[in-house]
Amino acid sequence: MSDPYVKLNIENEVGYIEFFHPAHNSLPGDVLTELAQTITDAGTNDAIKVIVLKSGKDRTFCAGASFKELININDEATGKVFFSGFANVINAMRKCPKFIIGRIQGKTVGGGVGLAASTDYCMASKYAAIKLSELNIGIGPFVVGPAIERKIGLSGMSQIAIDANSFYPAEWAKEKGLYTHVYESNEELDKAVKTTAEHLCTYNTDAMLEMKQMFWKGTDHWDELLAERAAISGRLVLSELTKETLKRFK
């Protein structure tokens, strides 16, 4: 399948939410909107006790936001809407009353790192290197920054945000607390994700809800915070430096 999609498959009380885009799983606004809604709907679906977030194909987990849409931003309002895409998904994950397990099978960049950081339990393969590349084009990881900082701390987040040219290996991400486990192959990863998710389904759902609320304590202001961050990015993307940088990618 080469067309973009978001789909939900329920198996043994686990809701597997999978997104895909042929451009290395970079996500345009319409796919992000559908992903946020699918997460919200899964959170209220009584047939689902635990959610797994994954992407299609075996290589890149998520290359961030759609570059095609990014280079066509010409005003601040459009820019804010564009950068609100990942904000809406992160907030949907934050508010979801069920545990979300991340299945990170390959490299993840920018907004994709934000998705990984917003899961409640994130499992990865050794190929799942991470990078925050936003500074390279004259903006920054403003929208995803709070989610990433929450998982790996200000020091770790600032390191990868400033070193915007480098991929950091999966083991580094594990040491910093982003990943809980790193597996040698995607086959091992999938087996572990399935086992973990199905075992969680045997637990008290009320207890898991209370734990999720405890994990996310202090983030009630994120609707406003991430909207403010999206506005910052929407303004910066119109700068002369950024526009000149983006021209080289057309």
Rank of each mutant, 00 (worst) to 15 (best):
Y5C: 09
Y5M: 15
Y5N: 04
K7S: 14
L8S: 03
V14K: 07
G15D: 10
H21Q: 11
H24S: 14
N25Y: 03
N25V: 10
S26L: 09
S26A: 15
P28C: 11
G29T: 14
E34Q: 15
L35R: 05
A36R: 09
A36E: 12
Q37N: 13
T38F: 08
I39K: 03
T40G: 04
D41F: 05
G43Y: 00
N45A: 03
N45W: 01
I48E: 05
K49I: 05
V52I: 04
S55L: 09
K57H: 10
R59M: 07
T60V: 14
A63D: 13
A65F: 12
S66W: 09
E69N: 07
I71M: 12
N74P: 05
E76C: 03
F83T: 12
F83M: 09
G85F: 01
F86W: 11
N88Y: 03
M93D: 11
K95G: 06
K95R: 12
C96F: 06
F99K: 10
R103L: 05
I104K: 03
T108C: 02
L115H: 02
T119V: 06
C122A: 04
C122N: 01
Y127T: 10
A128D: 11
E134P: 00
L135D: 04
P141H: 05
P146I: 07
A147P: 08
I148C: 10
E149R: 13
G153C: 14
S155N: 13
S155V: 12
G156E: 03
M157I: 00
Q159G: 00
Q159L: 13
A164E: 10
A164V: 05
F167Q: 10
Y168F: 15
A170W: 02
E171T: 07
W172D: 12
A173N: 11
K174C: 09
E187M: 02
K191G: 07
V193S: 05
T195C: 00
H199A: 15
C201D: 14
L209G: 00
E210K: 06
E210M: 12
M211A: 09
K212P: 03
F215I: 15
G218L: 01
L225I: 04
L226D: 08
E228V: 01
A230T: 09
S233T: 00
K247N: 14
K250D: 13
K250W: 02
